[in-house]
């Protein structure tokens, strides 16, 4: 599995435009809000956490259609399924690569974006703490959706329609934790959702991959 992750990371680096596009989308989408709502610090501070969360969620969706799509089109998916790894192992490796190439960079940029949106500095560490399991959850659920829609017509449209509703609970608890006086309950919920998705999403994605390869 390590070899697969390293190979996928190498491929992602060679296709650096995919990651860059996600990050630029994240930054640009975030900067649109002050233009639309005005630069007033009170207004922006009130919505900053939610804006960062929603923008991160949408930005992380962008590379998902190529997560398995390229492998499906060039025949590599067959080789992955015949690599000796179980299908859920292949799905897990892809999830890890998606998080490393998209979730982690978003997490790194989220802090400066939040400060630009006037989020109080003391809330930034908590925002990043919620985005850590949040981006991982998005990678897990996004991988599941990418596998389910593999080979489908209009997969790029179907994927957000599957992923975004699944992410609503994460969004609610993630954004609420940042401004809550007692964030631990929301953080526990995020951790619980991550623990549930960690085994289940790769299992589901693996089954979907096998179905797509038939």
């Amino acid at each position: 599995m390590i070899a697969l992750i390293l190979r996928e990371l190498k491929l992602s680096l060679r296709h650096g435009a995919d990651t860059t596009a996600s990050l630029l989308f994240f930054i640009i989408a975030g900067t649109l809000f002050p233009f639309a709502l005005g630069p007033g610090p009170t207004t922006l501070a009130a919505i900053a956490a939610g804006v960062v969360w929603v923008c991160a969620l949408l930005a992380a969706l962008l590379p998902l259609d190529r997560l398995f799509g390229a492998d499906y089109e060039d025949g590599t998916l067959d080789l992955l399924l015949l690599s000796g790894l179980p299908a859920y192992g292949v799905a897990f490796a892809k999830t890890a690569v998606h998080w490393l190439t998209t979730g982690l960079p978003l997490l790194i940029i989220a802090g400066p974006l939040a400060i630009m949106l006037r989020l109080p500095a003391e809330h930034v560490p908590l925002l990043l703490l919620t985005l850590l399991p949040g981006t991982m959850l998005l990678s897990l659920l996004g991988t599941l959706a990418a596998a389910i829609t593999l080979g489908a017509r209009r997969a790029a449209v179907l994927m957000p329609l599957i992923t975004l509703p699944l992410m609503i609970p994460t969004l609610i608890f993630g954004a609420a934790a940042v401004t809550s006086a007692h964030p631990s309950a929301a953080l526990y919920m995020l951790a619980a959702m991550f623990c549930a998705a960690l085994p289940l999403a790769p299992l589901g994605a693996g089954a979907a991959l096998k179905a797509a390869a038939e």
Partner: peptide, 19 residues
């Protein structure tokens, strides 16, 4: 997975990565 370890596969697609 064990069966897959016995197999070298060449499909009608080349599975070659352009990059």
């Amino acid at each position: 997975p064990s069966h897959a370890k016995r197999i070298a596969w060449l499909g009608h697609l080349d599975a070659v990565k352009p990059a």
